[in-house]
Structures are given as structure tokens and as C-alpha cells.
Computed example of a mutant assay.
Amino acid sequence: MTKSAGARRYLPSSPFNVPAADAPPIEVFEVGDRVSHDQFGLGRVIAVEGEAAVLIDFAGRQGRILSPFTKLTKL
């Protein structure tokens, strides 16, 4: 005899098996936006590849930053 593989019931008071929260929305950048990167510093967006990546000019050094842009903030 086998048990059904259905979803388990979530108990609000349980610290275990908390359902995953929705991921925060991916920030949208436009060409010309001023940005700050945790590692590379200040820069300006020079190209946008949809939601996949952005190309940024960091004072003469270009970098392609991939989504979800966790280390990149818009100024």
C-alpha cells in the first residue's frame, strides 16, 4: 500500500517547510540609466538585452551584468 504524493498541509505555526515566497520582481533598466554596482562602482547603462542582461560602462571599462541584478542598483 502506498501513500498519495499530494501536497502536504502547511501549518502556520510551524517553523519547518514554510512555503517559498514569491521572488521579488526583476528591476528594469533603460539605456542611459545611472547605476551603482557593489564590485565595479558607478556606471551608465549603454545597452539592454531584454530581461537577461545589461551592458554597462564603468568609466571606460565595460561590463555585462546578468539578471537578476542583485548587486546592481539604479541611482
Rank of each mutant, 00 (worst) to 15 (best):
residue 20 A to N: 08
residue 42 L to M: 00
residue 18 V to Q: 11
residue 58 F to K: 02
residue 46 I to M: 07
residue 52 A to V: 15
residue 32 G to W: 00
residue 17 N to W: 14
residue 43 G to C: 09
residue 39 Q to E: 14
residue 42 L to N: 09
residue 35 V to T: 07
residue 59 A to P: 05
residue 36 S to P: 03
residue 23 A to V: 06
residue 49 E to N: 10
residue 13 S to L: 11
residue 16 F to Q: 10
residue 43 G to F: 07
residue 53 A to E: 07
residue 44 R to H: 01
residue 45 V to H: 09
residue 41 G to N: 10
residue 57 D to F: 07
residue 32 G to I: 00
residue 41 G to S: 09
residue 14 S to P: 02
residue 45 V to T: 12
residue 26 I to M: 00
residue 45 V to M: 06
residue 59 A to W: 04
residue 40 F to Y: 05
residue 21 A to S: 05
residue 38 D to F: 04
residue 22 D to M: 12
residue 39 Q to V: 15
residue 35 V to C: 11
residue 50 G to M: 02
residue 35 V to N: 01
residue 26 I to N: 01
residue 43 G to K: 04
residue 45 V to E: 11
residue 23 A to F: 07
residue 48 V to R: 12
residue 25 P to D: 04
residue 45 V to I: 15
residue 23 A to C: 09
residue 29 F to T: 03
residue 44 R to A: 09
residue 15 P to I: 09
residue 40 F to R: 04
residue 37 H to P: 04
residue 33 D to P: 03
residue 43 G to D: 10
residue 56 I to K: 02
residue 43 G to Y: 00
residue 34 R to I: 15
residue 13 S to C: 05
residue 15 P to N: 08
residue 42 L to V: 05
residue 12 P to A: 04
residue 34 R to V: 14
residue 57 D to S: 03
residue 30 E to W: 05
residue 29 F to E: 03
residue 32 G to P: 03
residue 19 P to Y: 04
residue 18 V to T: 02
residue 26 I to D: 07
residue 46 I to P: 08
residue 55 L to H: 01
residue 56 I to A: 00
residue 56 I to P: 02
residue 59 A to I: 03
residue 26 I to G: 01
residue 14 S to G: 03
residue 40 F to Q: 02
residue 16 F to A: 01
residue 37 H to R: 01
residue 43 G to R: 12
residue 35 V to E: 07
residue 55 L to C: 07
residue 12 P to W: 03
residue 13 S to A: 09
residue 51 E to F: 11
residue 28 V to K: 13
residue 51 E to H: 13
residue 51 E to P: 06
residue 29 F to Y: 15
residue 59 A to T: 06
residue 50 G to I: 09
residue 54 V to K: 12
residue 50 G to A: 10
residue 34 R to S: 15
residue 39 Q to K: 13
residue 24 P to S: 05
residue 35 V to S: 01
residue 16 F to G: 01
residue 35 V to L: 03
residue 48 V to M: 04
residue 58 F to Q: 04
residue 50 G to R: 07
residue 42 L to P: 08
residue 30 E to T: 13
residue 51 E to I: 05
